[in-house]
Amino acid sequence: MSMTAVGPVPPAPHPLQPHAARLVTVTPEAPGIATYVFELADPALRARYAFAPGQFNMLFLPGIGECAISLSSDAGEPGRLAHTVRAVGSVTRAIARLRPGDAIGLRGPYGSPWPVDRLRGRDLILVAGGIGLAPLRPVVYHLIRHRPAFGRVQLLIGARVPADLLFVSEYQAWRAAEIEVIETVDRADETWTGRVGVVPVLFYQLRPDPRRTAVLTCGPEIMMRFVVYEALARRIPRDAIYLSLERNMKCAVAVCGRCQYGPFFLCKDGPVLSYDRVEPFFSVEEY
């Protein structure tokens, strides 16, 4: 219905407008993958910005485009916004060409976080495939900060080849904080003395207590399918299995419609959803 005011309606800033940010450091992680730490330019915004493990930002470069990238840093240090990016297309490759000091647009955080607070007191199995470890790293940092609040924690990490394993230099510190890090690679090389095989196979050696265990997983959908299968086979309840899903995404505010997954907008209701909610769609072909 119309309002009575007559006259031109002035434009308001669009929610898709990014905030100015600057690249602070770049840390190469693996071939084609690096971690970029950004800092918001506006000190007031920087002071206000907070995120939870599992959330993501939209990163923007003028004339090139924008894409969804998870925060991979410690949510307890929200001034330092780390994003671990795999260069695969136009925006991510352009990010890979940035130098410290360069400008970027950033907006967020968006999406549902891993429910770390609700999981206090539980045993956790984190399962990451490839770049899927990036959105789980803030969970690891959270667990380290609040270690006594959680039971046994096992972190299963899979990569195609040894050189693709992310954050390897940190595993020792994670183990020191009583997080059991178990890595595997699809294909070994001459340097590799560890396990070979796909991640879900690592489940065979676990004896989780289904009443106290929750599973948090992020990785290729096919991997997550097997993770769900293995978890269910060990009687872990459907609502204790959390997945971080990925779909094409343009707006991150539930209006572009592209990230729909059944009734969910993955930018708003996801990316983290419990398996009981996605089950009707999860095994449907090409959904």
Partner: peptide
């Protein structure tokens, strides 16, 4: 939605639509 213009520091964001 919005426009950008290159500046010495990087870029500035300008409104997209007029009234």
């Amino acid at each position: 939605l919005f426009r950008t213009r290159r500046t010495a520091e990087g870029f500035e964001v300008l409104p997209g639509e007029e009234a």
